[in-house]
Write a protein that binds this DNA or RNA. Sequence first.
RNA 1: GAGGCUGUAGCUCAGUAGGUUAGAGCGUCAGUUUGUGGCACUGAAGGCCGUGGGUUCGAAACCCAUCAGCCUCCCCA
Length: 455
Amino acid sequence: MAKIKVSLPQGTRDFNAEVVRKRNYIFQTIRTVFELYGFEPLETPAMENLETLMGKYGDEGDKLIFKILNNGLDLPEKHAKAQSDFEQVLAGKNNTGITERALKYDLTIPFARYVAMNHGQLTYPYKRYQIQPVWRADRPQKGRYREFYQCDADVVGSQSLLLEKEFAAIYARVFEQLGIDVVIKVNSRKLLAALAEVCGGADQLTAITVAIDKLDKIGIDKVKTELTSRGLTHEQIHQIERYLQINGSNEQKMEQIEALLGHTETGQKGMEELRYLINAGQFGTIPNLSIDFTLARGLNYYTGIIFEVAARNVQMGSIGGGGRYDDLTGLFGISNIPGVGISFGVDRIYDVMEELNLFPAQTKNGTQYLFFNLGTAESTKAFSLMQVLRTKGIACELYPDQVKFDKQFKYAEKKQIPHVVIIGSNELEKDQCVVKKLDSSEQIVLSCDDFLLQF
RNA sequence: GAGGCUGUAGCUCAGUAGGUUAGAGCGUCAGUUUGUGGCACUGAAGGCCGUGGGUUCGAAACCCAUCAGCCUCCCCA
């Protein structure tokens, strides 16, 4: 038989039983916490209209959207139009004649689209969570895939800072349950805006944000070089440097930022937000929450508090992020719906947990009892016992072929099935069965009725 | 979009300075052992050495191209 070379598209993965179980463990943990905080599930299609997505993620983002080729382009009567349309695509422009749909790039924009479409029906504040795959035509590398899951929770229709506090608590709780030691970095976009006001004006906000975002990668000197090339003066850059050098405990950082940006109105607002978040108050302190003024988070829609979560003790990009946005649905014609949300990067969380060996043994749950196949009459008996076990929720299976013991034992071992049940001609005659534990080799003989009574 | 590394058995990899029939470990299958697994021993199957060209008497090895994977930058989860 000719051997056909098979492969997977770049940046995609198959998940075997073990991996699926471990992933489900993460999903379940996150889902449970979301539900505990009153979020409702939402699912949206894998694909959206291309125009829904285009222009929402910046120029870079647009390039990374997977576009879907329209069907029926090969129909003879459409040839001429398809060819002229394709010229547009070759020129770097999208054309609905060639592609009008695309795979979703994140969960936030489809969510905004959903809110805009169902504006009248939703009960506000609307709290939803969404756990679905998204696709990006990125170059894959460590911790980066072309198909990966996002777990988002957002609230729209409320300005309350209480929500930010709850989201921080959700992060803390989920990672505590997963056993990952994290630092939840928090900042306010308003402070960045205030910094921009002080140094070069509001129109420099983006440039400053981008430069700050690169700090931990390129270092302070290169950040200064970049800012200089943006036309900032020596004095302005000095201010930014003072901003970036703020350190110490959360309280100490607040004191330093007060000295630097306290005289601006925007700065005061930003500090208020942060103070509310870090103060214990009536909700208690959130563990691992750390103010990080160098946190900037790209440049898109965030306007208030921003979050980013990093795992300690392991080299990995952020495993979660989010923040407040004032007017996400404005993009779709429905204005004045403020929102705030966070996201978990499940694939990276998986990699972190794998690297730190944090998955509990319970994730291996599968078949509990393997019934040996030792003949037709014997397996008929086994089958009737199994049906009882199954009604009691015990996973079990019968080896489908009557083969030697050796083989059936090895099957159980490979699948890590903890017990085997042996019903041969001897046992059948006495209405008994032999139950053997594989790890300890202990085995007991008991009547079929006694066997069932255990469950 | 830019750069680096790697493609040899199902998997992880050896393969000496180009030289007969390309190796190991693990895994698979069979047997020792036709109702008691893991261990051990014996044996077997399994390779167009990523693909295409070139250099050479001779290429898995050297050169070029191409494809794929991994990694870094950019950006991000």
